[in-house]
Design a protein around this nucleic acid. Structure first.
Lengths: 357, 357
DNA sequence: CTGTTAGCGCGTTCAC
DNA sequence: GTGAACGCGCTAACAG
């Protein structure tokens, strides 16, 4: 007869609810009820059961509970990488809200690879996560759309939820929750800020055609230029990925290329801004005295370098994703939330007339 | 009769192995065997089953599989916060290795709170994670030791593994795996580097009595001073937490306090170094021309500010933790691995004689 | 208030 | 090769 702590083959085995029941001299069902706490019970029985639980250091088997009861208590988040601050902050929001709701957090990373993403979503499906939250920037084409629609339908059919975080919606026929933030408005706002400070030649760092996030930010940039009736010079838009090295590279290359033909820089995100800033400083250019600089994201490090930037509610994004997913009245519905962004003015932008004065 | 996709109460329900069996006209056992792939089977049957799987978009229920079969395929990691770079990099290593081994990753955050840590470990125990990896800096006292020993024994009794990452071992009687890195040697190395460059008044930023990580680094710092027969001035050790704001605060306060009585700074980590650097530059002090600066961690951002620092193999730490936990011959054994650290020389330290010249 | 019974979805014996 | 039967640990009916 295997005892708690040892199975037939000698391998350690955790105590089960039956061990608790035996020790307390009650039935398994009673233990289950007392532990779930939703049923009335005699104080005596209750005490005996709780004591047995403590003595055996019993914890319920989540897998068995999930099988027997309803849904599992877990939320899945899928990101490119854990070490990118943008993702990390969203993930933190997901963690927070999941914990608040008593949910566990499953994390998967894709490295930006579509195959790994697919595999990860399948894995989360096997785990029966209540929701699968996909976060981040991505190329949107037909293949992507089809793939996401597939995820959404498969998850919905399994009573789960696909949540797209910081990605555009898929359409009315696809059951997914979308939690976005307003990239275009944010980019419009900073660009206007630069324009109203008298800057007309604004370098945009980090364009990347086909990727939703840079695309939307470029759009906001261009719209602001148009609103101010400032001619749009495509030569001021520099292609590059959204990390710090790229920011340095793009700025450095631009400075090496020839005479400086801009007075301000709008970096597609704070990482690029940080890299660009380093390149500028290395050339003896001061910010904001010689060059104005703005970013996007408002990561904590932005405050450290006094960067004027657009605040993205990263953690709120994660929290909202979880909240909507868990409290969705009718699972499998399409919902769309657009969170606001706002400009945070620090000290990296100067009026142009002050400069020329 | 509920079909796949719809249960009795109308709620969506994923396809089960039985649905696949029915559609393929075979028994559930056959489906199970074919999918596990370890059994011989008639090509015809095999084809029919695989087709049914595809048509139904079937994925096995991980919970049921875990219940029936052996272990679950998951590894748990518990950190203070996901947004701290140090933790994030270790987490990335855990993710990588877990994915390589076909394991899923459960993540819990504690915010540095012991109660939340306890709750999180219990949760991971319920999930039957193959290993629970606790990472990071912590106060080590008797209460801590007792708590960890409790975790270790409970996990071992359940056939799981406690892994301590970047924390000291608990003793020979406690079944835990410890994956450390050499804080003291690293601190000794940078301090020696500063000393051999002629610096004798080296400010240590980020002491925090009782916390293992700063304690070990202070120890290395002092040992190097002793080795160079440089008198140890406790007044050069400044207390503070390990983040950027603190680094700024400590440096700023020190500079405001009175005349500068040091020529070099050893920051307890790169975050502190970054903050201190900002404070120094604001006072017009150049690095390394006026002040030499060294850090600890070698985060990617250290390269951006040309910081001489100690390389910590963060991701290797995470990978090793997972590897040891999964391939431990005898679960519940005590193992101890100490990973090396090495100094990375960049451009934040200058010879003192050059300065005076 | 509590015990008994019947599954949850799957792997794994046994038989055929 | 394949099918029927049992059990993993637990919750949810249905009695009493």
């Amino acid at each position: 007869m295997p005892r708690a702590g040892t199975s037939a083959n000698g391998r350690p085995r955790p105590a089960t609810i039956r061990d608790v029941a035996e020790r307390a001299g009650v039935s398994v069902a009673t233990v289950s009820r007392i532990l779930s706490g939703t049923y009335p019970s005699a104080p005596t029985t209750r005490g005996r059961v709780l004591r047995a639980v403590r003595e055996l250091d019993y914890v319920a088997n989540a897998r068995a509970r999930g099988l027997a009861g309803g849904q599992a208590k877990s939320v899945a988040i899928v990101v490119n990488s854990v070490i990118s601050p943008h993702y990390a902050h969203v993930a933190q929001g997901v963690q927070d809200e999941a914990a608040r709701e008593g949910r566990l957090c499953l994390v998967g990373t894709t490295g930006g690879d579509a195959d790994r993403e697919l595999a990860t979503v399948q894995l989360m499906r096997e785990e029966h996560a209540e929701a699968v939250i996909l976060v981040g920037n991505i190329v949107v084409d037909d293949a992507y759309h089809e793939r996401m629609a597939g995820y959404a339908r498969a998850l919905a059919a399994a009573g789960s939820q696909l949540v797209l975080c910081g990605r555009p919606p898929l359409g009315p026929d696809v059951p997914a929750i979308v939690v976005e933030y307003d990239n275009t408005a944010g980019a419009h706002a900073v660009t206007s800020h630069l324009l109203s400070a008298g800057h007309e030649r604004i370098l945009f760092l980090g364009r990347r055609a086909g990727y939703t996030t840079p695309d939307s930010r470029v759009a906001g940039y261009r719209a602001a230029l148009a609103a101010y009736r400032v001619p749009h010079d495509p030569g001021l838009e520099v292609d590059g990925r959204m990390d710090r090295q790229e920011g340095y590279r793009m700025m450095r290359a631009r400075l090496d290329e020839g005479p400086r033909d801009f007075t301000a820089v709008f970096a597609c995100n704070d990482l690029i801004a940080a890299g660009a800033r380093q390149a500028l400083r290395e050339q003896g250019l001061r910010i904001p005295d010689d060059i104005s600089l703005a970013g996007f994201d408002d990561l904590p490090s932005a405050a450290d370098i006094d960067l004027t930037t657009v605040h993205v509610p990263h953690e709120e994004l994660g929290r909202t994703a979880v909240r909507l997913a868990l409290h969705s009245e009718t699972p499998g519905t399409v919902q769309h939330v657009m969170l606001g962004t706002h400009i945070v003015v620090r000290d990296s932008v100067r009026r142009r007339d002050v400069l020329s004065a």
